[in-house]
């Protein structure tokens, strides 16, 4: 039976056409493979860059925020405290940046070939996962170095954390990617926006230095629960603040839905306005 495609001005609409995405799964991997290849071409350190960035930030932050500003880090040494925050934050901001730029970066392909556009930002999330894995492996070494006992909770907290990070960054990334196609201002705002975002994420400070109500509000940023709960698992106590966790999960799902809705409803004009 031959595939039949009907082209109309208003196509049958669905949030995600899984069947089609499945048909294009190979292209999805090819895009991911391309980005990885290109990233480490002509670099002397190669994949080591995935280590150097968070490691260097860890040293600088530990000196300024840990030793000089003396920001409390609970039961964790500040270096490890900030490293956990940084590793997740780097993944989040990386996916957000790359997904947001994925449409305009691949403008020439979008104008000449059809494929479900969503596989471009999605492949960015997978590429980011590799750097994350490398950085997290290093974090494990730092945990061993400080001799921290890790709570068994980590077995499900870590994947959950990654999932929420992925969901949140994809949602926001899809939304910005679609806006980026139409408004080129986004390109200039984005780096600034992400820089600001790090301050409302508990990367360099814990949430328990603020009032509980305010901490709840911060949980609207999905990264709050992710960073905080992974830290808790590493301290060995493993007591998850479910209130914050649920707010963050819901918030990341809302982000994903909004991002998807906007992306899917505008993507058919991308080739015309990009």
């Amino acid at each position: 039976m031959r595939m039949e495609t009907v082209i109309r001005s208003k196509p049958v609409w669905q949030l995600l056409d899984f069947q089609e995405i499945w048909r294009y799964r190979e292209l999805f991997w090819v895009f991911a493979w391309r980005d990885i290849k290109v990233r480490y071409k002509q670099t002397a350190f190669g994949v080591l860059w995935a280590l150097l960035q968070p490691l260097f930030s860890m040293f600088v932050f530990t000196i300024f925020f840990g030793n000089i500003a003396k920001i409390p880090s609970g039961e964790l040494p500040y270096a490890l405290f900030v490293l956990i925050g940084l590793v997740f934050w780097t993944y989040f901001s990386g996916v957000l940046t790359n997904a947001s730029n994925s449409m305009i970066e691949n403008e020439n392909i979008i104008k000449k070939v059809y494929f479900p556009r969503i596989i471009l930002p999605a492949s960015k999330a997978v590429v980011g996962l590799i750097d994350f894995a490398v950085a997290f492996a290093m974090t494990t070494l730092v945990i061993l170095y400080f001799g921290q006992t890790v709570h068994p909770n980590i077995i499900w907290l870590l994947p959950l954390g990654i999932l929420v990070t992925f969901t949140g960054s994809m949602g926001l990334g899809l939304l910005i990617a679609a806006i980026n196609v139409k408004y080129r201002d986004v390109r200039y705002i984005l780096p600034f926006f992400i820089q600001m975002l790090v301050f409302i994420t508990p990367v360099i400070y814990p949430t328990n230095i603020m009032r509980p109500a305010f901490a709840r509000l911060m949980a609207v940023n999905p990264m709050t629960a992710v960073v905080e709960s992974v830290r808790v698992a590493v301290t060995g106590s493993g007591s998850v603040d479910w209130g914050i966790m649920i707010i963050s999960i819901v918030s990341s799902l809302v982000l994903l839905t909004v991002g998807l809705l906007y992306f899917r409803s505008t993507e058919r004009f991308f080739a015309d306005i990009i």
Binding site: M3, T5, I7, R8, I110, K112
Partner: peptide, 12 residues
């Protein structure tokens, strides 16, 4: 790559 404003096309 782009959508029509009106009309349709069926491709088998």
């Amino acid at each position: 790559i782009t959508m029509p404003t009106r009309g349709e096309a069926i491709i088998r």
